[in-house]
């Protein structure tokens, strides 16, 4: 019990110290448009709550969730395909790896050219940045199933389909969640970058607009929200993982 309280206390204390240091430093420097203090950011958040929560947050959430959904569909699809066919693996794997060496930020303006300021230019960036961890983890997970269990299933007369659904999918699930955890945090970054570069709404877009107006606190307020969205998504994946992988729970 004491241990548990301590494990919560330590990070809380650290964050508190950091915030206090920041506050003092900001007040000392006293140039709000370069370094706003945490209290100024909090006040700004309160002041802009209507427009942030009802206009820009929903716009960003739409980008994140659409991007993630497509990413999961494509990622799992390609992982299954690569797992099932040696040719598909040989064809896709190098492309998937090299796609990660492309600076996606540099590509974002091109997506704006292609898709305009629509939802899809931003979804494309989010998709490109999140499908990698999902695909690679799911693929590794599908291949992680034990050969001995596969042979045992075969001696029971199992079909290819049985082996896929009863062995490979359950084996892949923990790996898929690992990939998804990385993906959800990246999705926030992807959406923010895309909005920063070309959008008419969204937290990234709003942050940039405040930048142009030299409103330091206004730049930080949507960033705080973006960070909270990332944390919330991460916690949701953990909750989902706990529900679906009950067997994995440690004593």
């Amino acid at each position: 019990m004491i241990q548990k309280r301590n494990s919560f206390l330590a990070p809380a204390l650290l964050v508190f110290i950091l915030l206090v240091t920041w506050e003092i430093a900001a007040r000392f420097i006293a140039i709000a448009f370069i370094l706003p203090s945490p209290t100024q950011v909090a006040m700004k958040l309160w002041e802009l709550k209507a427009i942030l929560f009802f206009v820009h947050l929903p716009a960003t959430l739409l980008v994140i969730l659409t991007g993630l959904l497509l990413s999961i569909i494509f990622g799992i699809g390609i992982a299954i395909w690569m797992n099932g066919s040696k040719i598909a693996e040989k064809a896709f794997y190098p492309i998937i790896i090299s796609s990660q060496t492309i600076p996606i930020i540099a590509l974002a303006p091109i997506f704006v050219l292609w898709f305009g300021y629509s939802l899809w230019s931003k979804v494309a960036v989010t998709l490109l940045i999140t499908f990698f961890p999902i695909t690679v983890n799911t693929y590794d997970g599908l291949r992680s199933s034990r050969q001995e269990i596969k042979e045992l299933l075969l001696t029971m007369g199992a079909s290819k389909r049985d082996i896929f659904f009863k062995l490979q999918v359950p084996s892949a699930l923990p790996h898929f969640y690992s990939g998804l955890k990385v993906a959800v945090t990246l999705s926030v970054i992807g959406a923010a970058i895309a909005e920063w570069l070309g959008a008419q709404a969204g937290l990234g877009f709003f942050s940039r607009r405040m930048m142009n107006q030299f409103d330091g606190a206004g730049v930080f307020a949507p960033i705080v929200l973006l960070s909270l969205v990332g944390i919330a998504l991460f916690l949701m994946v953990i909750a989902l993982e706990k529900i679906t992988l009950k067997w994995r729970k440690t004593k």
Partner: peptide, 25 residues
Amino acid sequence: LGRVGYMPQQDLLMPWRTILKNAAL
């Protein structure tokens, strides 16, 4: 395949299945 009952050296139970579901496989 499917004609002989095979019990391997390691138990090879599926960790994600309950005992009931493992045995019913």
